[in-house]
């Protein structure tokens, strides 16, 4: 696929909705299309995080590997979701595994290239950071609620409180 063809795909992706045209064009310069087969990893814990993904199709599982326990599935992501913000924050390494549960189509954005562009174009940087901040807030809230173990363990949480 020609690089310029990605502009409409980026514009239509939920994560970038409303991003001014000139910034979309800048992003296109850092974007490429990728397909992942079922079972293939989009990223591996500890590896260098140079990219992030805009998911177009398929299911991706965010997992953490625990010695003795094996993999734990923390979250599933689908079309419209964004995967990866480790490229934004030093030391730019992946904190989780992400694996294609089904065949996946995604746009890969080159984080290294974007970091450079954000250094010179603060407006683009602001738009991107605002979007990532929203996602981070949602995932953090989700993670905190998950931590409460609401359906199963309300008992333990409450009785501790009561003491």
């Amino acid at each position: 696929m020609e690089v310029k063809d990605l502009a409409p795909v980026l514009e239509q992706h939920a994560f970038l909705a409303g991003l001014p045209k000139q910034h979309v064009d800048l992003l296109v310069g850092c974007a490429s299309n990728r397909k992942f087969d079922k079972g293939e990893y989009l990223c591996r814990q500890g590896e260098s995080a140079e990219v992030f993904y805009l998911l177009r199709d398929g299911i991706v599982a965010v997992e953490l590997y625990l010695p003795q326990k094996g993999g734990v599935r923390l979250e599933t992501l689908r079309e419209g979701d964004v995967l990866g913000w480790s490229w934004l924050v030093a030391p730019y390494t992946w904190h989780f595994d992400a694996r294609a549960v089904t065949p996946v189509r995604a746009i890969v954005l080159d984080g290294k290239c974007l970091r450079g562009k954000c250094q010179t174009d603060y407006e683009l940087g602001y738009h991107l950071f605002a979007r990532f901040a929203t996602i981070m807030e949602q995932r953090l809230e989700s993670a905190r609620l998950q931590l409460l173990d609401l359906y199963g363990g309300a008992k333990e949480v409450r009785s501790r409180d009561a003491r």
């Binding site: 299911i59 599982a61 965010v62 997992e63 094996g70 993999g71 734990v72 599935r73 923390l74 979250e75 599933t76 689908r78 419209g80 979701d81 549960v101 949602q138 809230e141 989700s142 609620l145 998950q146 173990d149 609401l150 359906y151 199963g152």
Partner: peptide, 23 residues
Amino acid sequence: TTVDYGGLSWRGNVGVVTSLFRR
């Protein structure tokens, strides 16, 4: 449907129920 804790064999959603709103 979504679950808070999914094993690797679970093919459905993992995440709290509120995360389904964006679907």
